[in-house]
């Protein structure tokens, strides 16, 4: 079984994003960038499926600037077999990303796509569902457990109120939630090995897909700041303050 794992290079989750003074976006100059944490979980899942003997090949795909090669090398060091970079200096919207991925899927014919549920920059939570729609494949989003077998996948999903389990016919799209697994750290030997694994480069424009933005960013601003709070001495003091504030 062949697994395709899309991965995105984003601001590191430990870094607090700062809005640019000219309100055109978030300042990413000299900011630490990493693989999106949900993509790490997706790579981990694919690699585990390979270790279990269910998956035979894991292909990592990224859409982004030349630096996204580092993100792909991370995926290779975690255990992916090969990688494809679809190079673009634009920041394509989820629909455009889904269309580019659909084009790659046309070439690669994977049995299943495992990807993160959300990228922590745009916070859209949309690409996986859009990709499933474009391919007319079933979708199992927000996965917290995945059992792959020939022809289908049984997926436990994190939903409001608990866990829903569904069974989807392959090929399908699975999007990873936080508790699917705990991603490994790549070992030094594996990081070295990853340098020799194949990484293909393609220009996004060569895929013949319409990636024109549908949304114009008018401005990016800072959210309103909360007014300064106070420290209270003890629980009784807290209750007095809460009564005065009118919330008790």
């Amino acid at each position: 079984m062949k697994v395709l794992v899309p991965v995105k290079r984003v601001i590191d989750y430990n870094v607090k994003a700062r809005v640019k003074a000219d309100q055109t976006g978030v300042d990413l100059a000299n900011v630490k960038m990493s693989m999106n944490p949900f993509c790490e979980i997706a790579v981990e899942e694919a690699v585990r499926q390979k270790e279990k003997g269910v998956a035979t090949e894991v292909v990592a795909v990224s859409i982004g600037p030349a630096q996204a090669q580092e993100t792909l090398r991370t995926a290779l060091a975690m255990g992916a077999d090969r990688a494809i970079l679809i190079q673009t200096d634009q920041d394509p919207e989820p629909l455009a990303v889904a269309k580019l991925l659909a084009a790659i899927i046309g070439e690669e014919s994977p049995d299943v796509v495992i990807m993160g549920k959300q990228a922590i920059d745009g916070d859209n939570n949309a690409t996986g569902q859009m990709l499933a729609a474009l391919l007319d494949w079933p979708q199992a989003t927000f996965a917290n457990s995945v059992e792959l077998s020939a022809g289908n996948a049984k997926v436990g999903r994190e939903v409001d109120g608990g866990i829903q389990t569904i069974d989807v016919t392959l090929p399908a799209i699975i999007t990873a939630d936080l508790r699917l697994n705990e991603p490994r750290y790549a070992s030094l030997p594996n990081i070295l090995k990853a340098k020799k694994k194949p990484l293909d480069m393609k220009e996004a424009a060569s895929l013949g897909v319409d990636t024109a933005p549908r949304l114009k960013v008018v401005k990016v601003t800072e959210p309103p700041k909360r007014g300064g709070g106070i420290k209270v001495e003890n629980a009784a003091d807290l209750v007095t303050n809460l009564k005065t504030a009118g919330v008790l």
Partner: peptide
């Protein structure tokens, strides 16, 4: 966007 550290105004 960015965990609520920025607010984006978009026109569709």
């Amino acid at each position: 966007i960015y965990a609520g550290n920025a607010l984006e105004t978009v026109q569709s």
